[in-house]
């Protein structure tokens, strides 16, 4: 088993942290994992992305051209990465910000109103964890509990008071994916 995931969005949306949570959880589960950010001369409000590769054998390339899974948190990321998802792969879109229809018919798609869910939980900043929850709910790539443990351990000190809200965001994201697309859970076997 080896799965590659690209998290992409605006700088400040927490895409790097969402990827790190997946990586921390994978490491905790005893899996091989690589996490690598794009680290070009980015500016605040510009686009950010990271690539996470998880596997049960040592990871060769930490970078991929056609990822198995893309988590796109905004429109520019959706435009850039939708064409790159591997055929049969999964695209998780933030429906709060991506209003256009999906072009691809050869991939599974989850459109989740991540910003709206996050705001209902108290902060739009939780949208990244909602999206991560949806990814986990749809694929079962890792146990949700492993992500929750990674959250508890690695949520920065200044966001500590939001731990319970983060855990709820994770759960609601996963519930959304499992409730709305039960067939996806079967299709994207990991």
């Amino acid at each position: 088993m080896e799965k590659s995931v690209i998290f992409a969005g605006f700088g400040g949306q927490g895409v790097l942290f969402a990827g790190q949570l997946l990586a921390y959880a994978a490491a905790e589960e005893g899996l091989y994992v690589t996490w690598i950010p794009s680290y070009g001369p980015e500016m605040r409000g510009g686009t950010a992305n990271c690539t996470v590769v998880v596997g049960d054998e040592p990871i060769g390339s930490p970078l991929v051209r056609n990822p198995d899974i893309v988590v796109a948190m905004n429109l520019p990321s959706a435009d850039k990465y939708e064409p790159l998802v591997r055929r049969g792969g999964l695209l998780v879109l933030n429906g709060s910000l991506v209003k256009r229809p999906v072009q691809r018919h050869d991939i599974d798609v989850i459109v989740i109103p991540a910003n709206d869910i996050a705001e209902s939980l108290g902060s739009v900043k939780l949208a990244n964890v909602v999206m991560l929850g949806a990814l986990i709910g749809a694929t079962g790539l890792l146990p949700l509990s492993a992500i929750a443990r990674a959250l508890a351990e690695h949520l920065p000190e200044r966001h500590r008071h939001l731990l319970a809200a983060n855990e709820e965001a994770l759960r609601q994201g996963a519930d959304f994916a499992m409730r709305m697309w039960p067939e996806v859970v079967a299709a994207v076997s990991v």
Binding site: Q20, Y32, V33, T34, W35, I36, Y39, I59, P62
Partner: peptide, 10 residues
């Protein structure tokens, strides 16, 4: 190289 410096691994 920059990849090794910036990436995370267990």
């Amino acid at each position: 190289d920059g990849t090794l410096g910036q990436m995370m691994e267990p």
